[in-house]
Amino acid sequence: MDYFLELFLGGLTRGSIYALIALGYTMVYGIIELINFAHGEIYMIGAFTGLIVISVLTMLGWNSIAIIVLAALIAMLYSAAYGFTIEKIAYKPLRGSQRLSALISAIGMSLFLQNYVLLAQTSNFLPYPNLVPTWDFLQPYEHIVRSTEMVIYIATALVMVLLTYLIKFTRMGKAMRAVAQDRDMSMLVGVDVNRVISFTFIIGSSIAALGGVLVASHIGQVNFYVGFIVGIKAFVAAVLGGIGSMPGAVLGSLVLGWTESFFTGYISSDYEDVFAFLFLVLILIFRPAGLLGRSDTDKV
């Protein structure tokens, strides 16, 4: 039973991590129908920025809680800036051209960012200090759930609530939904579409950065390549939930997290990634609209 609980919570952690990244994929896809291949790299840049801030502040001798909070905030700021800039350079000039072109551009961006970090920093794995304080009341359950994991759950839940509020009740949220429905029409009724798209990239990227800092703290290391595989898996989760749907992204992430956790726990850990990809292939073949997605037939 303990083992089951461990796997369950492990799956919840994975799922929460995927969710933080999958949200960005799904938001961007909902608005401009683009698979933002570089989104995993945004996450990686967030983790790296966080690490740099942590290192600098540690040398200055700051308090560890202040450091982790500040590191997360700065990482979010920077990732948002990267997301914003990438959209302007690689996607905006391609609006209205073939979808294939935008996807190739996104792949190029992903390749560029990986190598940018590789060249500017290092190709080695860097140890990542875990500055999340250990909570006393969690001490007895240490072997099942650590406080970092607790922080990941809480952060994910908080992000979900804030995003729901943002989308449902704010002006910007309304504009986002309008653009997702029909871009041309919203332009005609006076929505500043460029601003909405930029805003979407900013929000999605900063959530990914938060994930980046938390996950790197949790795992304890980072390198330039971490974004790729996590990014792909988060994409799997977003598709599983129904791309374009935000509750879907979270649900898909949790389902993927749990299935992976139980699969590796009870069956085999060698083929963990094979399993994730197989999952993706099967979903797309049998239920392309995902769990909560709406299917749309090609207009003739």
Partner: peptide, 20 residues
């Protein structure tokens, strides 16, 4: 050659933007 993949990435983006 160290910058090979960096340049490839930039190249893909540039080609798509300017000369698909």
């Amino acid at each position: 050659s160290e910058y090979r993949m960096l340049v490839f990435g930039a190249l893909l983006v540039m080609m798509m933007v300017f000369r698909p």
